[in-house]
Amino acid sequence: MVRRRLSQDEEALWNALIRSVRPIRPGARSAPLPATAIALPEPPAAKTGLTPVPQRPLVAPPSRTPAAVLDNGWERRIRSGAITPDMSIDLHGHTLAMAHARLDQALAQALSRDARVLLVVTGKPPKTVRNGGEARRGAIRGEIGHWLETSPYADRIASVRVAHPRHGGDGALYLILRRKK
């Protein structure tokens, strides 16, 4: 294997990736690995007349992330249940792949309609098992945070909040979408 040094852009991207990773067990942290060199496979024997395949550019992470707290008007409307979703989607009964695809479709549709609030019904998470049992969540509910973070529309999501009980409570989420610029 031939080794080469990372460029400044690649090293910055690697460091951003390292900072974005959350440990599964927060108490078990290890020291970050140095990202100074990467291994590349040895190039095959040169053939005449062939052009090399261009490398795909690295994609930067979304520039904005959802806010934990919105302004007082939004907070008051969410707490009181006075918020009215512009659109809703129910992911019950779907496989993970199908639910993920439907969520992306719903986000695209909501953004094309200039909707501000999308209600996503994921289903209530099972109650926590105590006394040595495992705490589990529903599969869709467990994945939806990751799906939203890695979505092509992640920078258009202003906040993700648990819905008011009249809209599903713990079994649903409000996606507050940013306005177009």
Rank of each mutant, 00 (worst) to 15 (best):
M98D: 04
S20V: 13
T122E: 01
S20K: 14
P85F: 09
G142Q: 10
V21I: 15
R25M: 05
P43Q: 07
A101K: 08
P32G: 14
V21Y: 05
A135P: 14
A39S: 09
S151F: 05
P126Y: 08
L91E: 03
T84E: 13
L148W: 00
A68V: 03
L96V: 15
D71E: 12
T65G: 12
E143W: 01
T150Y: 03
P57R: 00
S112I: 00
T48K: 10
R141G: 15
P126T: 04
P66M: 03
V121F: 04
G49K: 04
A31Q: 13
P44T: 14
A35P: 08
R137N: 09
K127C: 03
S151L: 02
E149W: 00
L119D: 06
P126F: 11
G93R: 10
D114Q: 09
R19M: 11
N131V: 10
W14I: 01
G138Y: 01
P85G: 05
I83Y: 01
A82E: 08
Q55R: 12
A97V: 08
A35C: 14
A115P: 07
A37G: 10
A135C: 10
A39R: 15
G27A: 08
L148H: 06
P66S: 07
S151I: 12
L96N: 11
A106H: 01
E134R: 15
L148R: 02
A110G: 08
G73R: 05
P34A: 09
L96F: 02
R141W: 02
